[in-house]
Write a protein that binds this DNA or RNA. Structure first.
Length: 393
DNA sequence: AACTCGGGGCA
DNA sequence: TGCCCAGAGTT
């Protein structure tokens, strides 16, 4: 290990100076984020789960809507999973929402509805690893627990001029020990947040603002002119291209939707029937779509038109989605929740169904189309209830 | 120690 | 299109 790292780990005065500098800076620079206005463990927990692999700006709106709907653990534990997922829709990594929901039930069952205060008990909840447990308990209760995540990996790597891949097991061990070593005895929660804030606002991936960094003087990467090289870049992901087809099956004013099963992507969410297909939307595409729906779901359809083509990414996949508009002809569809969980729903009902993002996008197209088609003469009796869809970005 | 989980935003 | 993001859980 480099000398500066040893200094940080060994010299208590140096560590105290570092902590003081960072905390003082944070006191004047901390952003006003919604989850910083509370010390309620449940609220902090929700924020930390949402923030996993997700940027702050994206989370803010979701956090506020989620807590408005589920203000405490018991409310969340008692909620329908569909409502939980509906509020998570668009945030991605939906397993987080299902695990949060399951953990809420566990908190009610095992801890009387009180969020646990011991590291081991928190760590035992689904979806909570070392980072999240340390974050919740340090921020909420000032327990002296270190954290290590995207921002602080970068900050600490630069601070000690870590030459190795910070993702390696060896480096992680080093970084966790540094995170623990520099953690002051008091204001641990503020300090942990300050470190993340520093990584997010000053010690950025590209062109870090060293001129305004409160700890530039003890930064080894800075001293060695290596801020551009540290942390070592991750090897770029290799994408796999996929082409899939989604079919909008119309029957009167209803549409056929299917719940994604465990083991599939978007498990628990709903989508228009979707399957892997050829790359082009030609004659054979129509035929194979018809055959696929018949053999897969037992539904006979008559293709109407190619509705749209959309591209989206899912982890390491790049998906081109061909969307086919079709009419239901025949075939029995069990309208229940048993797998494969098919349902006929109206456009209005879709507002409450948790859909994957592409499903929501298609729904938007259908609503648009319906509005355009509607002639002034065919006026239906006004609906008394208008359901408001959550805004999609 | 890798790999996967199957996401989404933004320049 | 490439890079990044307040990681967790498995193999």
């Amino acid at each position: 290990m480099d000398v500066p790292a040893d200094d940080l780990l060994r010299s208590a005065p140096l560590r105290r100076k570092l902590a003081r500098s960072i905390l003082t800076w944070f006191d004047g620079a901390a952003r006003d984020l919604p989850w910083r206005r509370t010390r309620d463990l449940y609220c902090i927990w929700v924020s930390e789960i949402m923030l996993q692999q997700t940027q702050v700006a994206t989370v803010v709106g979701y956090y506020e809507r989620f807590l408005a709907a589920f203000p405490d653990v018991r409310t969340l534990a008692a909620a329908d999973e569909a409502r939980v997922l509906r509020l998570w829709e668009g945030l991605g990594y939906y397993r987080r929402a299902r695990q949060l929901h399951a953990a809420a039930k566990q908190v009610v069952a095992e801890h009387g509805g009180e969020f646990p205060r011991s590291y081991e008990a928190v760590r035992a909840l689904p979806g909570i690893g070392r980072y999240t447990a340390g974050a919740i308990l340090s921020i909420g209760l000032d327990q002296r627990l270190p954290i290590l995540e995207a921002n602080t990996i970068r900050v600490l790597s630069r601070l000690i001029a870590l030459r190795d891949d910070p993702r390696s097991t060896q480096s992680q061990l080093t970084l966790w020990s540094v995170a623990e070593a520099i953690l002051p005895a008091e204001r641990c929660g503020a300090f942990n947040q300050a470190l993340m804030e520093l990584g997010s606002e000053i010690c950025t991936p590209r062109e870090p603002q060293c001129a305004t960094c409160p700890v530039a003087v003890c930064c080894a990467a800075r001293a060695q002119g290596l801020t551009k090289e540290i942390p070592l870049a991750a090897k770029k992901t290799e994408y796999t291209d996929l082409t899939e087809t989604a079919v909008v099956v119309r029957r009167g004013n209803k549409f056929l939707v299917r719940q994604c099963q465990p083991g599939e992507r978007w498990a628990g969410l709903w989508d228009f029937p979707r399957f892997a297909s050829a790359a082009v939307a030609d004659e054979s595409w129509l035929t194979s779509a018809r055959e696929h729906l018949a053999s897969w779901l037992g539904v006979q359809i008559e293709p109407i038109a190619h509705l749209t083509t959309t591209r989206h990414g899912v982890t390491r996949y790049r998906i081109t989605l061909q969307v086919l508009d079709a009419r239901y002809v025949s075939g029995k569809v069990a309208d229940d929740l048993a797998p494969p969980s098919l349902r006929w729903v109206t456009l209005a009902e879709l507002a409450e169904v948790p859909l994957c993002v592409t499903g929501r996008k298609i729904t938007g197209l259908l609503a648009e189309k319906k509005t355009k088609q509607k002639s002034p003469v065919q006026k239906k009796p006004a609906r008394t209830k208008v359901k408001r869809a959550q805004p999609t970005r």
